[in-house]
Structures are given as C-alpha cells and as structure tokens.
C-alpha cells in the first residue's frame, strides 16, 4: 500500500461529521419546520422568562424564505411595566415590542 494512500485513509471521521452537520441543518428545517419552531419557541420563552415576565401566548416565531435563504422572525411582546417596574432593569427605548430578524 502506498504511504500517501494510507495517510489519506486516516481521519475520514471529521469529514463525516462535517457532512452530517451540514446535511442535518438543512433536513431539520425542511422535514420538521414546525417541530423546530415549537422547540425554538419553548427555548426562547424559557430564556426570556428568566429575565422578564412575558405572556407566552404573545411570542410569535415564524420562518420564511425561499430555496436560497431562510429568515427567522421572532416577535415578542413585553409589557412596558414589567421592564420599567423593576429598578434593576433598564427600560427599553423603542416601545413594547422586541423584534429580531435572523
């Protein structure tokens, strides 16, 4: 067996790992968007609830996009008094809704 071949045969696991990560990132969105969104929504609500009291019903998570790119739109309504009411937290400058697009 030639030495170069032996060397190339080694370490194919990182290639496998990278291929899987790329593939599954696509398949998870394509095959299970609703489930992905519900998981994202749950995690977002849990994270935000640690800091601000919000109504989980007023958290909107939406995925859009075409074949080339997907956009994730998150709209969370935070009551102004929950932010202002606690002296330790800084009030938000721009109204009641926090909108993030990624």
């Amino acid at each position: 067996m030639n030495l170069l071949k032996m060397f190339q045969a080694r370490g194919s696991a990182p290639v496998a790992r990278e291929r899987l990560q790329i593939l599954l990132a696509h398949e998870r969105v394509r095959l299970g968007p609703e489930d992905l969104l519900s998981r994202l929504r749950d995690d977002l609500i849990a994270t935000i609830l640690r800091h601000v009291e919000i109504d989980p019903a007023k958290v909107m998570v939406k995925m859009d996009g075409d074949s080339a790119v997907s956009t994730l739109e998150i709209d969370i309504e935070i009551p102004r008094e929950k932010i202002v009411g606690d002296g330790k937290r800084r009030p938000m400058d721009d109204g009641e809704a926090l909108t993030t697009a990624a």
Binding site: A9, R10, G11, S12, A13, P14, A16, R17
Partner: peptide, 11 residues
C-alpha cells in the same frame, strides 16, 4: 475512533 476513522462518541 481514536484513529479518526470512525465518528467519536462526542461527535
């Protein structure tokens, strides 16, 4: 796995 020929447990 240690030789990098197989996905590791961590992977």
């Amino acid at each position: 796995s240690a030789r990098g020929e197989m996905l590791s447990v961590a992977d």
